[in-house]
Design a protein around this nucleic acid. Sequence first.
DNA 1: CATGAATGAGATTTCATTCAT
DNA 2: TATGAATGAAATCTCATTCAT
Lengths: 222, 222, 222, 222
Amino acid sequence: MRCLPQRLRAIDDHEKAARRQSILDAAKALYLADTSGLPSVINIARQAGLAKGTVYLYFKTKEEIFLAMLSEDYETLMTKVIKLLDAPPSPDELADNLLTTLINFLDNNPLFMPLASMASPVLEQNVEIKIVGEFKLMLNEKINLIDNLFREAFPQFPKGQCGSLLLHTNALILGLWQMQNWPEKLKPLQQQYPFNTFIPDFKKDLALSLKNLWKGALVSHS
Amino acid sequence: MRCLPQRLRAIDDHEKAARRQSILDAAKALYLADTSGLPSVINIARQAGLAKGTVYLYFKTKEEIFLAMLSEDYETLMTKVIKLLDAPPSPDELADNLLTTLINFLDNNPLFMPLASMASPVLEQNVEIKIVGEFKLMLNEKINLIDNLFREAFPQFPKGQCGSLLLHTNALILGLWQMQNWPEKLKPLQQQYPFNTFIPDFKKDLALSLKNLWKGALVSHS
Amino acid sequence: MRCLPQRLRAIDDHEKAARRQSILDAAKALYLADTSGLPSVINIARQAGLAKGTVYLYFKTKEEIFLAMLSEDYETLMTKVIKLLDAPPSPDELADNLLTTLINFLDNNPLFMPLASMASPVLEQNVEIKIVGEFKLMLNEKINLIDNLFREAFPQFPKGQCGSLLLHTNALILGLWQMQNWPEKLKPLQQQYPFNTFIPDFKKDLALSLKNLWKGALVSHS
Amino acid sequence: MRCLPQRLRAIDDHEKAARRQSILDAAKALYLADTSGLPSVINIARQAGLAKGTVYLYFKTKEEIFLAMLSEDYETLMTKVIKLLDAPPSPDELADNLLTTLINFLDNNPLFMPLASMASPVLEQNVEIKIVGEFKLMLNEKINLIDNLFREAFPQFPKGQCGSLLLHTNALILGLWQMQNWPEKLKPLQQQYPFNTFIPDFKKDLALSLKNLWKGALVSHS
DNA sequence: CATGAATGAGATTTCATTCAT
DNA sequence: TATGAATGAAATCTCATTCAT
């Protein structure tokens, strides 16, 4: 596969998308290198090999960059979930597969949880209403789609139940992660104090609580 | 007769605590007026009738103020939960009571959710380790206490299960609120787009998902 | 029948001159609409229906546009002055006519004074030497011409005196206008403060001071 | 004379004025070193040994700095003029003295003319209305004062005539300087083209034209 | 203890100008 | 020639935090 060098000017929409992506990549690389805070715009520009002004041609605010990044991650995740419904086994197995997929995704996308946690209190506060709306709409549509696919496979479930469960699942992940994510510099404390009783391990805990959530949701239709 | 001027300096511990509280009150008032972001230190100081520097005598960072505020709220909530266990009815009724208590608390403490949502991505990032540790420790102890009280009333449940469920409950609330809380300026979009399928109403949704979570958790011990 | 699209490129000199003029017109229209500062190149381009880069094919800098505009205005004015000398009356009447012509010109060319005021501190600072030189040379030649015509009519005046007087006249107009031109937003202040003692009205003041200047200049030759 | 080191914090009004002055001094030094454009705020801050933010504590915009500088210069000049009226000789001698004073002042304050030329087209455009008003008011008051002092010495002149003449004098200086001031890089052209007929030398020309102006103004009262 | 001046990092904006296409 | 993407300097603003007084 030939990989042409990036043009110096993004003329058509395709090139513009590529440049936009290169900014996202740069931002991701920097954020990955130091998750203690969002990298500065000037550093993102430098990392992308662009001028600061150019970054602002593609994103109105710094937060818009990271909301776009989160949006991409969500799309990736949703796509994986949708694939699970291609040849769905029983609901129980599906739940297991979903959990595996999820854990896998979180492992491969270590910025997803920090970004998702920042979405409401940080990112959405400094992104123009239209863009936030598009983000929310995209999420909604994916969930809708999944709900429909799910009911095609399991018609006994009412419309909306699967979507609602997905939403709650997402919420639970979000909340759990926030409670169990400790700032890097706090890690020493995690040994020092006996928190381990209740905050043992994010992924184990996630598995447990999701199963509880799903068990409760499905129990009425068994 | 000499009329002493109002004491300008907080000398003893009591006065210091009062001043600290006045800063918290000022911060709360301002944050209540606009939850789109933490108020600035200069405004908090002005609201409290103090100079900017004085605020920093009582809190090392701005985020420390709001973590203290959140800590207070959590203590209030935990105390209410503990009271529920004074004369516990059946686990099912307890769950109902807990939900009522919770909804009630959220209604009366409109800053709790925004603060709790900011805890991990914002507040804990800029508060010194020790303080964050104390906050986490306090939460841990309350949950521990509740778990113990619960098992006194219902010995059939294993140690840690109630605490764990509380933790997950908290996580679910946290995540759900973040997904359903729309910035003020986005409210118009909530009608415009068909999000309502899955995001009907925070409290209704909360009730539903918590019941699912609890159902799933308790089902094995029924 | 094929309908040729409007020619997009200016090929011959005539078309180029027309395009150059359309840029000047666009710039003039925008500057007229807001004299508080030179309009931006992007706006000039938009107004002219061109791309930003195209403007730079016709003018090396933004200031060059406005120096060209000023140059045109000066030529117009000088031509009017030259016409006054076609059939010259007495020097006194000539002075009266000049004043009338001047006032008339300023009324019909509201950008002349703002542009002339910017010439030295702004325009000439960012236009290449050669162009500024041409501008100065043009002015010089016109004044020379007028001086010659004047001495044809009134041989008793020495070479250079009329030209020099014109120069001083121009200087006086320039300075007076700057002192009495108030930014739009300052107009309210002009009533509020008792500036009126000395700053009554540009044109009245101009008439007075020019008469003084000319009286002083001519007195030695009466 | 003891010269105490500058305090690190400007607490009282006197110290604040001193710090403000130190910013003005820094700006003046830089502008003097390169009159081709106003120095940047960051450089002014550095030159003053302050942070950029500190400069903005004392001046709202860069232009405000230079309007303040011009204001100072005007006050200095006006004070010199006022001193001329302490023991006034004949009006004619006074005019000579004024011219000498003026030339002297311009020699010692090489930034006065560039600043004065920028006042209307540049500085006043980016300074808040109130400050511009104060500047104009100050000028007005000085001229008023001079007019009064002049009439004490020479009661035969009507109120306002001297003030008006001063205004016109100022205007003439301003305009003349602008016409004869050539950008540094343009100096070579001044030899190349035969402008010298009409633009011989600013100071000689100034003397000539002012004398004409004054002669014309005074002729009616001789 | 209390104050508020000073700091300085960083976001955002503007915009003239350049230059690849 | 024409375009508009990219540049990059500079202004302005905000604001948490420090620290001299």
